[in-house]
Design a protein around this nucleic acid. Structure first.
Lengths: 334, 334
DNA sequence: TTGTAGGCGTTATCAT
DNA sequence: ATGATAACGCCTACAA
């Protein structure tokens, strides 16, 4: 690492005090034009750039935003982060990335870490922390934007997907296609979104007078590994359609069906959730409840930026509605 | 944001000097056990945690690693970052994420930014910067690990995919399946890996005495949007097989073939590159040159950690060989 | 074992 | 318009 020049070095070279250098760096008006030019020349000649660390010590701003999520290789989060990063960048804010791998302890310590680094704000994607802890930690890193978590707390805003609507719409769609024996595979976490999705599923069934059968409701234990087996169980129970909690899970469902010599959608209909890139390349192309992930990322970041600026209004709660994208993995029951 | 306690506050409460607090925080031995316990009690009671910023000012270490890549939503990079993050985390290092969107100007300014934040090291994924600039910037953020770029510079190590081997192996595989009219679709950038891949393609053809036809060599202009059209052109030229520069591009190739009423692999064979998640769910499942992305991320981070520690040897150049994963998108020409 | 003084590189405040 | 001085919160070196 090259040894870095400091503002003092520049001051010495320019024959002025470091305060003047500071003024030039910060575009303060009260500097003689001649001096300013001279200083700028020296700064450029030596490609001097001030230490943001030192600056942060006094300004109390780091321009860093901590972004905490379970898994960056999950395209759901990756696409959201793309939206976040671009929007933050446009506001001269930068991303401190933290991955919790769904571990509560890591989530906890990462939020502390964010505080210790003195970030200007934090984005929490689907935190698993319980409400009490969340309420305790939020003030330390606020402002905070939460994804998929509705918490009414000071210094926090929320962007949530309406999973109830999603689960309801997907199920209703299948019912209207003539299905009544519909299996549902829910995600590994006890997350709110899963409960919501299940509620939506039930709501649709009830609305159409179809009995809710508990043994058609499946929960994945840890990750997608279990989907294959759950699909087998559902098939044994003669379902004619399955809704999965995300597109990748739906892909595993289809794979399992193929292994069981069932054709999708002829023998069984499958519907996913997310609308990630893989959904359109699967065969058959996946019918899914699609989410505007990139735009969600932008919304999240924009909300945070407004909170930070402090002079602009922001939505305490933004609700995102998934949109049914009908493709070829679903079919009318004839 | 709650107002944060400082080391001075704790010192006052404990009735000792702040230096003693510092000693306790840093586990220095020269502290009376009674004092240490007393101080620890107060620290815990108030959940005091030192400012890492202030600490960095004097220790000259931030424990932050800048990770610069073109696009986090590209599963190729996302999976690599997952490996990087986990390994860095195990070494108490953290990720400062920067996305360049393939723009050279952004790459340039992000490297500067990394310097100004005084990061402990940097990971550059497939930088587009020319060699001169790269050589100039590396010393400012070193140690640096470069992905897919072989540059022999002080303070830099490289992890590269052997694209020549990959291109060669894929092409050879197709030739041995009886294909001789083989199209190749190369990536958008003038990146080294594309040139290498083409060289491998040519090498295989030459080895088997098959003439290299320039009009079977296609370059994507900007992104995957163009793949569809290029595929049409190749089909017009009666190719029986196409190798694509990554799995997503291969997906578009297959889509284009379907649109042209060609069946894969019966009418045309397609082979991808990367072995990303989508490849196994495509229909037909994609034959591809697969890369151990997560492990590559780990290797990259591990190399950087060794460089930072300084007392451990590290590979200046690590070469990764893609592995042929034969699935159902390729077939013998009968 | 503990405390004091000084400094890391900047900006803020108050003089001049 | 410019400069001197004091912070920001911590650690290092030296003194007690």
């Amino acid at each position: 690492m090259e040894k870095k020049l400091t503002i003092n070095d520049i001051a010495r070279m320019a024959g002025v005090s470091r305060q003047t250098i500071s003024r030039v760096l910060n575009n303060k008006p009260e500097v003689n034009e001649a001096t300013r030019k001279q200083v700028l020349r020296i700064i450029e000649k030596h490609e001097f750039q001030p230490s943001l660390q030192a600056r942060s010590m006094v300004t109390r701003k780091t321009n860093m935003i901590a972004v905490l999520l379970p898994d960056i290789s999950n395209s759901f989060f990756a696409e959201i982060v793309r939206g976040i990063e671009r929007t933050l960048r446009a506001n001269k804010l930068h991303v401190f990335l933290m991955t919790s791998e769904e571990e509560i302890a890591l989530e906890n310590s990462f939020i502390q870490l964010a505080q210790n680094y003195n970030v200007d704000g934090m984005i929490l994607c689907s935190p698993r922390l319980d409400e009490a802890n969340l309420r305790k930690l939020i003030p330390r890193v606020s402002p905070v934007v939460l994804l998929n978590r509705d918490l009414d707390a000071d210094g926090a805003a929320c962007v949530v997907v309406d999973s109830l609507y999603g689960g309801y719409t997907a199920t209703k769609y299948l019912i209207e296609k003539g299905h009544s024996k519909i299996g549902i595979i829910l995600g590994p976490s006890r997350a709110y979104s899963n409960i919501q999705r299940l509620d939506g599923y039930k709501k649709a069934l009830v609305e159409f007078g179809i009995p809710v059968e508990d043994d058609l409701i499946m929960h994945v234990e840890v990750d997608n590994k279990g989907v294959h087996k759950l699909t087998e169980q559902l098939v044994k129970k003669k379902v004619t359609a399955i809704t999965a909690y995300n597109d990748l899970a739906a892909a595993y469902v289809i794979q399992a069906c193929t292994d069981l010599n069932l054709k999708v959608p002829d023998d069984i209909s499958v519907i996913g959730f997310d609308g990630s890139v893989i959904s359109q390349f699967m065969n058959p192309a996946l019918t899914t409840m699609s989410l505007p992930l990139f735009e969600m990322g932008q919304t999240i970041a924009n909300t945070l930026v407004r909170m930070i600026k402090g002079d602009q209004p922001f939505e305490r709660l933004t609700t995102i509605y998934p949109i049914l994208k009908e493709r070829n993995s679903t079919k009318s029951l004839s």
